[in-house]
């Protein structure tokens, strides 16, 4: 087993703070302190941007497609404004992607008490106490590998939060890769890491850290090997340049692509 590492050319990177084209009018991309609003059941997560309050998500459980951010950190919000009824006073963003930024920020510490006017008008997917025997969502259920899959080349893509590396969401994404490679007795695994940039609604561009594409790719290779996938030959590459963001699907650039070959 060997890791073949190659460094691709760095294309011209967009500089942090530069101003580019603006996202479309319903897109709301911004960095802010999250706000917690308690309710009579589960708390809401909100954020302010340009004088408007936006609803980010509810507290549910680990299986939710959108997980709440963290006080003590700013959050990158990438979402689309909807006309749905406000929740906890906030305009609903949907879909929305939330990335907790790594730096600690003690200014992000707003926990608002429950007020009757902000109570939920619907039953939340998961109460704050006993769950009545179910997960709120099932998106993290690890899919079982096919009993006898065809030995064909297969592609997988592992997504990340902004500036993120492997975390609690990734076992559900890595397990199918591992299962398939073991099932077909893969001989070769190509891993390609990427990093991205985010175009904010005010035109600012945030770049992910240099070397993050490399770190993501190498980490995925190490994790698959650490999980016992040591037979195939690994080819690990990374694209160090972050493509120019467009403000609408920038999160798609934050990924590692994996190709499993029989």
């Amino acid at each position: 087993m060997s890791l073949q590492r190659s460094i691709t050319l760095s294309l011209a990177c967009v500089s942090g703070g530069a101003v580019a084209a603006m996202p479309d009018s319903v897109q709301r991309n911004f960095v802010a302190c999250p706000i917690v609003r308690d309710t009579a059941s589960v708390p809401c997560w909100l954020a302010e941007y340009e004088g408007e309050l936006y609803f980010l998500t509810l507290q549910t459980d680990v299986s939710a497609p959108v997980n709440p951010p963290m006080l003590g950190h700013k959050v990158l919000v990438e979402g689309r404004r909807t006309d749905k009824p406000r929740i906890c006073g906030g305009i609903v963003l949907e879909p929305v992607r939330l990335s907790v930024l790594p730096a600690l920020d003690a200014n992000c510490n707003q926990l608002l008490p429950a007020e009757a006017q902000y109570n939920l008008t619907f039953e939340p997917p998961r109460p704050p106490g006993p769950s009545k025997g179910r997960l709120a969502f099932n998106t993290l259920d690890v899919q079982q590998a096919e009993v006898a899959p065809q030995r064909v080349e297969k592609h997988f893509s592992i997504g990340y939060d902004f500036e993120g590396r492997v975390g609690f969401k990734h076992p559900a994404l890595l397990q199918p890769v591992l299962d398939y490679a073991l099932a077909i007795k893969a001989t070769s695994i190509n891993i390609e890491g990427h990093r991205g940039a985010a175009l904010l609604s005010d035109g600012t561009i945030l770049n992910e850290s240099p070397k993050l594409a490399q770190q993501r790719a190498q980490q995925v290779a190490e994790l698959l090997q650490g999980a016992g996938l040591i037979g195939p030959r690994y080819t690990v590459r990374w694209i160090d340049a972050a493509p120019a963001p467009n403000g609408s699907d920038d999160s798609a650039q934050r990924r590692v692509d994996i190709t499993i070959k029989p």
Binding site: P128, G129, P130, F168
Partner: peptide
């Protein structure tokens, strides 16, 4: 133990695994 909620905050591998920080939950 089961039903008394409180704010669980800044606890690594609890507040960092998708429940949010803080999370209003119980001992259970």
């Amino acid at each position: 133990f089961m039903f008394r909620t409180f704010w669980i905050r800044d606890s690594m591998h609890l507040n960092s695994v998708g429940l949010g920080n803080p999370t209003k939950r119980t001992c259970a």
